[in-house]
């Protein structure tokens, strides 16, 4: 019974995951794309949970489906009608080539998986209840993977600085905006002198 329940939940989550993924790529309205991606991330979190990745699932919902997607929705709302994306680009030849390359990539991945690891994928390791728990993750981050942890923080800092620099109005833009009023105040005394 428990086995059946796990299978049922897994199938629903995997189906939702693939369906929302397809919707992200095919929707012409960017809002429905972004909302479908939130569903995709949530169903992926369920799959992570079933593979005993509790902390990764929680981080997925908090960081991805929460913070990152809110940023996406804000930008789409800020862009308004300009964000509208009629769905495909390029000539029919390019579209066909894109689909063919995606499908062939899928085939290559499947063949590589089956050839390389065919028999060895079935015997899973026994894990304790601590596997994937926040405490264990924290211990790994502060012992074995300390360098990766620190580098991640630097990457995030650099990205934040980059975001601010990209968002800053450049000096040329400020001047272009300020010019009309500046010219008026400068020009009027000259005209009076003439």
């Amino acid at each position: 019974m428990g086995n059946f329940l796990v299978w049922a939940i897994w199938l629903v989550a995997a189906g939702a995951c693939l369906a929302t993924g397809l919707r992200v790529v095919t929707a012409s309205n960017p809002f429905s794309s972004a909302l479908s991606l939130i569903g995709n991330l949530a169903s992926l979190a369920v799959l992570f949970l079933l593979a005993s990745g509790e902390f990764v699932a929680a981080a997925q919902v908090l960081v991805y489906a929460g913070a990152v997607m809110v940023m996406f929705l804000f930008v789409i709302a800020y862009l308004g009608g300009r964000a509208d994306a009629p769905w495909a680009g390029g000539t029919r030849l390019i579209q066909t080539a894109s689909v063919i390359s995606a499908v062939s990539l899928l085939a290559v991945v499947f063949v590589a998986l089956m050839l390389n690891a065919g028999g060895r994928l079935s015997d899973e390791a026994e894990v304790t209840r601590a596997f994937g728990s926040p405490g264990e993750m924290g211990r790994l981050f502060l012992t074995d993977h300390l360098l990766a942890f620190e580098i991640t923080s630097i990457v995030l800092l650099v990205a934040a600085v980059g975001g601010v620099v990209l968002g800053m109005r450049s000096a040329a833009e400020e001047l272009a905006d300020a010019k009309p009023s500046l010219q008026q105040t400068v020009a009027s005394p000259e005209e009076a002198a003439r």
Partner: peptide, 8 residues
């Protein structure tokens, strides 16, 4: 590969 909008 298919979509043109940088957002998508």
């Amino acid at each position: 590969l298919l979509r043109r909008s940088p957002l998508i």
